[in-house]
Write a protein that binds this DNA or RNA. Sequence first.
DNA 1: ATAATAAAAGACAAAAATGTCTTTTAATCG
DNA 2: CGATTAAAAGACATTTTTGTCTTTTATTAT
Lengths: 151, 151
Amino acid sequence: MPRIFVRMLSKTCEYGLRAMIFIAQHSRDGKRIGISQIAEGIDSPEHFIAKILQVLGRKGIVQSIKGPNGGFYLDEKGRKCSLATIVRALDGDDLFNGCGIGLRQCSPVHPCPIHDEFKKIREDIETMLEGARIGEFTEKLDEGLLFLKRN
Amino acid sequence: MPRIFVRMLSKTCEYGLRAMIFIAQHSRDGKRIGISQIAEGIDSPEHFIAKILQVLGRKGIVQSIKGPNGGFYLDEKGRKCSLATIVRALDGDDLFNGCGIGLRQCSPVHPCPIHDEFKKIREDIETMLEGARIGEFTEKLDEGLLFLKRN
DNA sequence: ATAATAAAAGACAAAAATGTCTTTTAATCG
DNA sequence: CGATTAAAAGACATTTTTGTCTTTTATTAT
Ligand code: FES
Ligand code: FES
């Protein structure tokens, strides 16, 4: 059973959240930030996050412009968008609805042994992710109180 | 981005927990339960859960006997074992330690933007899984108040 | 217009997780 | 003992996730 790593969110989603928070930090007053700088800034594979941002772009969650001086940026709406919105866009909402031990459907009338406790956890996760906004970390990132990569 | 399903625990771990709870229910007073009945009882691939139970068996978490009237069973210790023990045995403890948005290490002195909130969630999950025992669901399963598969 | 820039898109590759099948080993029963 | 039963183990296949590379499209600047 060579399990390497289990996580709550997929890599796709982790990169997506870090990238969006990074873009929020680096696209103030009309500036844009390029994909290679994003990749460097969050320590992640460039082409992979490019694809992730394309998905978010198609859904109107992030903005981008091609060509010289192009790059990614967030409008006011994007800056206020919750982390939950990003998670839903990339991972779907199974994290918020699925059964903790894999029953095909979570249902209170056909509950698994940990249904009540797990539902509570799921709701806490959702509350947390709904409550946090992409743009709210900018200042603390500037001040070096928060980080988006290891070093 | 064709994400099919995101879950907190791996399939391996989900099957493992369901199988162990099922074994607890069906191995009372010296009885044993065979792998094919377990597979049917929790609606999961037989050979796959066989492998999972082998891992748990090597770690002494589940008991088994070969041959006629053989099968899997739990001793008293196994029945009291927490769900967290199973999760750790199968998925490791990254779920209890890892950073929510994928920094290489979760650390309060080098926190990601959601460190505090995520730490709280992680601790709640751990508390829940530490608190629940494999054998505690037997009666309610018997009574049809809890379920380990869809139908 | 042409060249340069940068994202979008598509094809492909590698790794990991999940699932299946076959052979081997151990226990029981006649 | 030999036959049968059932788990253990090993090999392999499929699917999903993650990552890389190349080509295309759009924008800007000269
Ligand atoms: S049925 Fe399992 S969490 Fe609801
Ligand atoms: S650093 Fe991200 S959860 Fe602790």
